[in-house]
């Protein structure tokens, strides 16, 4: 019974995913169908048309072990290892630098906005 419930709850995610994909291809949108499905699901949760307790157990179970679902895709890089031996290795410091800039600049901007907010209340 418990397993059946979890399977049904996870099926809800598949349902929204397929709806999102269908909407994307029907209107040839440039946003991924999965994101459309997620926004739709979020809207239904927000408007309480879907109650959290109806879906929570299965979804929390899936989220807890989310990384395992990325394993096969990540392992796919084994087909291109030689890319990283040559010039491709430059992509690694580039991604790191870009990440540092993102952390630094976005937290600075947020910090300034928060200070402005406090000043406005004074």
């Amino acid at each position: 019974m418990k397993y059946l419930k979890i399977i049904l709850q996870i099926s809800v995610l598949f349902l929204f995913y397929y709806i999102g994909e269908a909407i994307q291809s029907a209107f040839s949108l440039f946003i991924p169908g999965s994101i459309i499905g997620m926004l739709l699901f979020f809207a239904l949760l927000t408007f309480k048309l879907i109650r959290v307790e109806w879906v929570a157990d299965g979804i929390d179970l899936l989220i807890k072990d989310m990384p395992i679902f990325f394993v096969p895709v990540t392992v796919g890089v084994v087909q291109y290892l030689e890319f990283f031996y040559g010039k491709g290795s430059l992509m690694i410091p580039l991604v790191i630098l870009s990440t540092f800039l993102t952390v630094g600049i976005s937290s600075c901007i947020t910090s300034l906005l928060l200070k402005k907010e406090v000043d406005a209340h004074d």
């Binding site: 995610l13 995913y17 999102g20 999965s34 997620m38 959290v52």
Partner: peptide, 26 residues
């Protein structure tokens, strides 16, 4: 040959994006 098994795991990649709506809602 690895993907003969991996393909089953890949099926969840899209639905997991949908799952992220729940923590966001909370």
């Amino acid at each position: 040959s690895y993907m003969l098994g991996g393909q089953w795991i890949d099926l969840f990649l899209g639905p997991i994006v949908v799952a992220l709506a729940l923590p966001l809602y909370r």
